[in-house]
Simulated scan of single mutants.
Amino acid sequence: MHKSFYVFNGVNGKAAPVKTVIRQYTERDFEAMIDVQRESFPPPYPEELWWSKDQMIEHISRFPQGALCAEIGGRIVGSMTGLMIDMKDYGHDHSWETITDNGYIRNHNPNGDTLYVADICVIPEYRKTGIGKWLMQSMYETVVQLGLGRLLGAGRMPGYHLYAAELTPDQYVDRVMAGELQDPVINFLLRCGRTPIGIAANYLDDEQSGNFAVLMEWRNPFTTYSE
């Protein structure tokens, strides 16, 4: 994977197009990747969940097609990491640690039917440019290229803590889908073409989401997939 395009990043729409590259990350990018994690996931996000060099070595050796970064002017500004799995081995109610092998993806299954998103992030400076959607689109292309049935991942629900006393996680997602509530992560994934299919409890130590996450998929339109 290596492609280039242009994004706009400026105030009041006054910005020149900036060339952006999406490519597979390699060992020489590890320090920059950790910086991206640090900027993208500040407290209260647990620091120990940032990628480590040992984890990234596994990413690029086991499934390099699922190890993508976005680069502008030689600076990495975002990344996305995935692995292939067979969902029959896990079911919907799984944790991030279980389904990603605690981020090491040693459970990557080359014969799996689903590309599972372990992580996607863009540094705050570039979050209004569409780079996140470009990363997602690039991973959809990987799904199509490999002939997989779908892309699946669990999104945080950072607005849920404001309503947890009155709404179940499913009710919260229903209200977001009805346009009655706004959730930045769920709305972002919807704009990327993802569809909610369920809730995972105790997915991640995430106070804002009440440790819940919403499972959202994108189905490969060129295959017939049945779970």
Results as ranks from 00 to 15, higher is better:
Met80Glu: 12
Tyr172His: 07
Glu227Ser: 10
Ile105Asp: 14
Arg219His: 09
Gly73Asn: 11
Ala15Thr: 09
Leu135Asn: 06
Ser40Asp: 11
Ile99Cys: 06
Lys88Ala: 14
Thr81Asp: 05
Leu215Lys: 10
Asp206Trp: 05
His92Phe: 10
Gln182Met: 10
Cys69Thr: 07
Gly198Lys: 08
Leu68Gly: 03
Gly82Ser: 15
Thr129Ile: 03
Ala165Asn: 15
Leu151Pro: 00
Asn102Tyr: 10
Gly132Met: 10
Val77Trp: 00
Leu181His: 08
His2Thr: 13
Ser4Arg: 13
Arg38Asn: 10
Met139Asp: 05
Met157Phe: 02
Lys128Tyr: 04
Gly132Asn: 09
Leu152Asp: 13
Val21Tyr: 01
Met177Thr: 05
Phe212Gly: 08
Pro46Tyr: 04
Arg23Gln: 06
Arg38Ser: 08
Lys3Val: 07
Met33Val: 14
Ala165Tyr: 01
Asn109Lys: 12
Gly132Tyr: 02
Asp206Arg: 10
Ile76Glu: 03
Tyr160Arg: 08
Cys121Phe: 01
Glu27Lys: 15
Ala200Leu: 00
Met216Arg: 06
Ser95Tyr: 03
Tyr172Met: 07
His59Thr: 04
Asp86Glu: 14
Asp93Lys: 13
Phe188Ile: 10
Gln55Lys: 15
Gly74Val: 11
Thr224Ser: 10
Tyr25Lys: 02
Thr81Gln: 08
Tyr172Phe: 15
His2Gly: 02
Ala154Cys: 13
Arg127Tyr: 01
Tyr45Pro: 03
Thr100Arg: 01
Ile120Cys: 05
Asn211His: 13
Leu135Tyr: 03
Ile72Trp: 01
Arg156Thr: 07
Asn109Thr: 09
Asn111Val: 00
Leu83Gly: 10
Ala67Thr: 03
Ile34Cys: 06
Lys133Ser: 14
Gly179Ala: 08
Thr114Asn: 08
Pro110Arg: 12
Asn109Val: 09
Val173Ser: 01
Ala16Ile: 04
Leu151Asp: 00
His108Val: 02
Met157Gln: 05
Ser40Leu: 07
Ala67Asn: 05
Asp29Leu: 09
Tyr203Ala: 13
Lys133Trp: 00
Ala201Gly: 12
Thr168Ala: 03
Asn102Asp: 11
Phe222Ala: 06
Thr100Pro: 00
